[in-house]
Design a protein around this nucleic acid. Structure first.
Length: 696
DNA sequence: AGTCTCACTTAGTAGGCAGGAT
DNA sequence: ATCCTGCCTACTAAGTGAGACT
């Protein structure tokens, strides 16, 4: 309730701010800058608490686009396949497009490492890890640690093993061939030169989206109970019940907002009779239905290999049929060819719409976009599309309006496609251009800090934050979503100024919820002038007033665009993330490092970027357990080393007492054993460090 | 200038799967 | 053969930002 009220107040304040802004001149810096809140003092709520909700913080992999280091650039645009970036090209070739995509998204990637061999090595490490199992089986065999394996290799077992291996061998060869085929088929669009900005394609043909299967009513023995009485529901009502029943062991079904939203949306879909009977959610008993679905999922888990195979084949058939389109004569993978199935909306954070019903999408809701001369996809039998259009200035194949926010959703291509790849490449080129310009831009925003105009000062400080802290732009949001902010939408309550903190001067303490309701908490020393300005910006303002009340993302981006065409706030994130990764890799890698050490450095560099961009993830549930296991392994290895050392000592003594070929061989063997074990221990310890550091 | 709409990118998470360990 | 684990992908929510409209 309080939160609602706060939001409402904020909304009102914002409205009046807009109008007051117009009236206020921008040049009252030295005198009385009258913040908009001044005139709204009357509707101020006393004792309004900060609405920043604390949430658990963890750290995770880097998602930010980290690919280019503009630092290393000295020429103009570079195509992904051009010889200058051979290393990367090589990397790309050795992976399937799937892997490539993933690598790009999940981990930081460096494109320009031709000038630094070390760097390339470390970037390739991840690849090595993955490619490892593609090595020839013979090699695998040779590398098998003898002991246990040799015991097994007797007679028939041996034969079976061999057969298995030849089969595996064959499979792998086939896989390799497939991959080769795939690679040679691959559309090397980057070799064709840049395509038009407005026209996205000339021809486009596809099968339309795949519709999720119709609802299957519950078996007769599974029942919904109301007030203790079994009740048969109409299929539509029952379907909605199953959405809720499936989530019963999730924490959010216990949240009031979730329950209320669910119940009111559910009621709307009920028949008149049902609505008359079902009055409160607390009297609804979904437990039998819940149990039914738990059992079903258990069954699915316990399916035989053959059954699973059937499902898999069905899935790949679907993928073949719906998963690709023909764009300018090339077969391109679609990113999300399956329409989103109905269910209950669960936003992130304290979302006011959590629990609302996400309705089933009908063909009548879907707009199809395809080539003029292409075969128009057939709608499901008995249905028709909302519309069929042939707009080649957009990249989507189908769209519909999602009913929770009324925003459009699209079916678009996979990141491996030309359309996405080219855009991605462009993004890094823009970041590269920023590298050339960043010094002058930094100079300019510093000048703005002392401008006569309040808006220039605010803009200067905002860009400084975006640049220094990699904050997001912070567009304005409607009130029907979680209360999250970015740079321009920061409120006074999100920062605390400390003249002195932790032994440093001019500290700003940030505490707010950013995208996805991820908490941003940071204490940073800022320049004295920034500190002064911030003090000025918050003067006479309420906690819930905008910190930067004279600027918007639109204005900010307009200024940035004047500094450099194509420059917007988000480019700084790409640029700074890339630069950070490159710097870290340079710092953390040296010649002669082992692969394990390089992996650790690589992960550390990635982590530095994750910290900069405030990328977080929930700590894996299995973390403690796997850590413990790793520690046990280390302990065991240490014991083995002790043992091996003892044996070595004995062997030494034996050799000294009675030197012979045999004793010499034994001694060498023992020496090698100690060495091998020590190396293994070192590897494990590195793994442990990496694992531990990756948690936070 | 503010607001709305649309298109497209970015990001966290769940769950499946392959491959190594036991 | 089975279990475990880490990697990867699919999914979809939630951002950014351009341009049209008011």
């Amino acid at each position: 309730m309080k939160l609602e009220k706060e939001k409402h107040d904020r909304r009102e304040k914002k409205k009046s701010k807009r109008s007051s802004k117009d009236r206020e001149k921008d040049s009252e810096l030295n005198g009385k800058h009258k913040p908009s809140s001044k005139m709204k003092q009357s509707d101020r709520q006393s004792g309004v608490s900060s609405s920043a909700v604390k949430c658990e913080a963890g750290d995770g992999d880097t998602h930010e686009d980290v690919k280019v280091d503009p630092d290393e650039r000295n020429d103009g645009q570079q195509k992904p396949g051009s010889p200058e970036i051979n290393n990367n090209k090589e990397k790309t070739r050795s992976k399937s497009s799937k892997q490539r995509h993933n690598h790009k998204e999940r981990t930081a990637d460096v494109k320009l490492c031709d000038e630094d061999e070390n760097l390339c090595e470390s970037v390739k490490m991840k690849k090595k890890k993955r490619v490892k199992d593609e090595e020839s089986p013979e090699k695998h065999d040779k590398n098998q640690p003898s002991g246990r394996k040799r015991k097994k290799t007797s007679s028939e077992h041996d034969k079976a093993e061999k057969n298995k291996k030849t089969k595996k061998d064959g499979d792998q060869k086939k896989k390799k061939e497939d991959k080769k085929d795939e690679e040679s088929d691959k559309w090397k669009w980057w070799e064709e030169g840049k395509s038009s900005d407005t026209q996205k394609w000339s021809s486009l043909e596809h099968k339309g989206p795949y519709f999720p299967p119709e609802y299957e009513p519950l078996p007769d023995n599974i029942c919904f109970y109301y007030d203790g009485q079994p009740m048969k529901l109409s299929p539509a009502t029952e379907e909605i019940v199953t959405f809720y029943a499936k989530m019963l062991d999730h924490e959010y079904t216990s949240k009031e907002v979730f329950q209320n939203n669910f119940f009111s949306d559910w009621k709307e879909e009920m028949t008149k009779e049902e609505r008359k009977l079902i009055k409160t959610l607390s009297k609804c008993d979904f437990s039998q239905i819940h149990k039914y679905f738990v059992e079903k999922s258990e069954e699915r888990k316990n399916m035989t290999k053959e059954e699973k195979q059937v499902l898999k084949e069905e899935a790949s058939r679907l993928m073949e049929e719906y998963g690709f389109c023909l764009l300018d004569g090339h077969r391109e993978k679609i990113g999300n060819f399956k329409l989103e199935p109905p269910g209950l909306f669960r936003g992130r954070g304290e979302h006011p719409k959590m629990g609302k019903l996400k309705k089933r999408i009908q063909p009548e809701d879907v707009t199809i976009n395809c080539g003029q001369d292409s075969k128009i996809p057939a709608p499901p039998a008995g249905h028709r599309w909302k519309r069929v259009q042939h707009d080649n200035t957009v990249t989507w194949l189908a769209s519909w309006l999602e009913n929770i926010h009324g925003r459009p959703k699209y079916i678009m291509l996979n990141p491996s496609s030309k359309l996405k790849g080219e855009k991605d490449w462009q993004k890094y080129e823009t970041a590269r251009r920023l590298k050339m310009k960043v010094d002058s831009i930094r100079k300019q925003y510093r000048r703005d800090w002392t401008s006569r105009e309040m808006k220039s000062r605010q803009r200067g400080v905002a860009i400084y934050f975006i640049d220094k802290l990699a904050l997001r732009a912070g567009n304005e949001k409607d009130d029907e979503s979680a209360d999250t902010v970015g740079c321009c939408s920061l409120r006074v309550e999100h920062i605390t100024l400390h003249r002195r903190l932790d032994g440093q001067e001019h500290m700003v303490e940030f505490d707010f919820l950013g995208k996805d309701s991820i908490r941003y908490y940071n204490k940073v020393p800022v320049e004295k002038q920034v500190f002064k300005n911030l003090k000025l910006f918050i003067k006479h303002k309420d906690p819930e007033d905008d910190l930067f009340d004279r600027i918007t993302t639109v204005k900010l981006n307009k200024t940035l665009n004047e500094c450099m065409p194509g420059l917007t706030a988000k480019v700084f994130r790409t640029f700074n993330a890339s630069t950070t990764l490159q710097d870290q890799l340079n710092k953390l890698t040296t010649e002669g490092m082992t692969v394990e050490e390089k992996i650790l450095s690589y992960n550390r560099a990635n982590r530095a970027v994750a910290i900069l961009c405030n990328h977080q993830r929930a700590a894996p549930k299995t973390f403690e357990k796997s850590m413990q296991l790793l520690q046990e392994k280390i302990q065991k290895k240490k014991e083995q080393i002790e043992e091996a050392k003892k044996e070595l000592k004995e062997a030494k003594k034996a050799h000294k007492d009675a030197p012979s070929d045999k004793s010499k061989k034994l001694l060498e063997k023992k020496e090698k054993a100690v060495q091998r074990l020590s190396e293994q221990l070192k590897k494990l310890q590195l793994q442990e460090t990496d694992h531990e550091e990756n948690k936070v």
